[in-house]
């Protein structure tokens, strides 16, 4: 039972934010560095899947991101947990999958001493993640977690790492929740559509073949739009065959020896 004074631990604030952002599944390997975040999930409607090694946990979270288009969520402990989890994080990077890795961190009072399993996450994950942050004040959890969801999802989707100092998660605070994030669509302008019409008309005047490639999700609209059109549709990414299957019941990629 949470106390009735309106104060929550950092771990509880974080768990509440995950529910607000629509998270249904969390994959983790537990660690003492984020025990207060686990406690925040106690009794939560989120389904927790406890895994045996962080590489598997991070790949599971990545698969959820692929399936839903919303960040897959993974919790791991500091040091060895984080380095194990880098396997799934790298997949999210190359596959453009929205994902958030929450990782434990040493207490704020002992950082920079290379304390037990301490890592500089910004340095370690700097070239894999779209953004790496560390939350020092539990009152800023709603702000920074909201930003993590936005960055992971918007533009080219990818992985975000959020480090959670152990004592920050246990600190009690009074703070309002942030509302649910919403993915942002970007639209082509009228001038771009007109220019594209001209280019397509010029190509159609030739004898050859326009080629359409799609490497993204949300294919239904694309299938509808292309129903009467002309070009061949191919998936430009290896292992994105179900996109092409949706579009035309076939695909033409033959990369037997190149893409095992």
């Amino acid at each position: 039972m949470r106390p009735s004074d309106g104060m929550r631990t950092g771990g509880e604030v974080l768990a509440d934010q995950l529910v607000i952002h629509g998270v249904r599944h969390v994959f983790c390997v537990p660690g003492e560095s984020y025990i207060a975040a686990l406690d925040g999930l106690y009794g939560s409607p989120i389904e927790l899947t406890v895994c045996r090694q962080e590489g598997g946990a991070s790949m599971m979270a990545e698969a959820i991101g692929k399936a839903t288009g919303r960040p897959g969520i993974c919790f791991v402990t500091r040091g060895p947990g984080a380095t194990n989890a880098s396997a799934g994080l790298h997949i999210a990077r190359q596959d453009s999958t929205p994902m958030i890795l929450f990782v434990g961190q040493v207490g704020r009072d002992m950082r920079e001493r290379e304390a037990f399993q301490e890592l500089d996450y910004r340095a370690v994950f700097g070239s894999i993640a779209k953004w790496v942050t560390e939350i020092d004040d539990p009152a800023r959890i709603p702000e920074l977690v909201s930003r993590a969801f936005s960055i992971a999802t918007n533009g080219r989707p990818g992985p975000v790492v959020v480090a959670l100092p152990e004592d920050m998660l246990a600190e009690r605070v009074t703070v309002a929740d942030a509302p649910a994030f919403e993915p942002v669509e970007t639209w082509p302008g009228a001038a771009e559509i007109e220019r594209m019409r001209q280019l397509l008309a010029a190509a159609a005047g030739n004898h050859h073949r326009p080629l359409v490639g799609s490497g993204e999700r949300r294919v239904d609209a694309l299938r509808r739009a292309l129903r009467h059109s002309a070009g061949d549709v191919v998936p430009p990414q290896p292992r994105r065959r179900s996109v092409a299957s949706e579009l035309c019941g076939r695909s033409q990629q033959r990369s037997e020896s190149k893409t095992p």
Binding site: M59, M60, I64
Partner: peptide
């Protein structure tokens, strides 16, 4: 693959993905 969202595989070429992806998809 007859429907979108029926194939889960790493374009990154990472080994070891099939089993955890299957666990996640069966949970979902």
């Amino acid at each position: 693959y007859r429907r979108y969202g029926t194939q889960y595989a790493p374009a990154s070429g990472s080994m070891g993905y099939g089993l955890p992806a299957a666990v996640a998809m069966k949970r979902l």
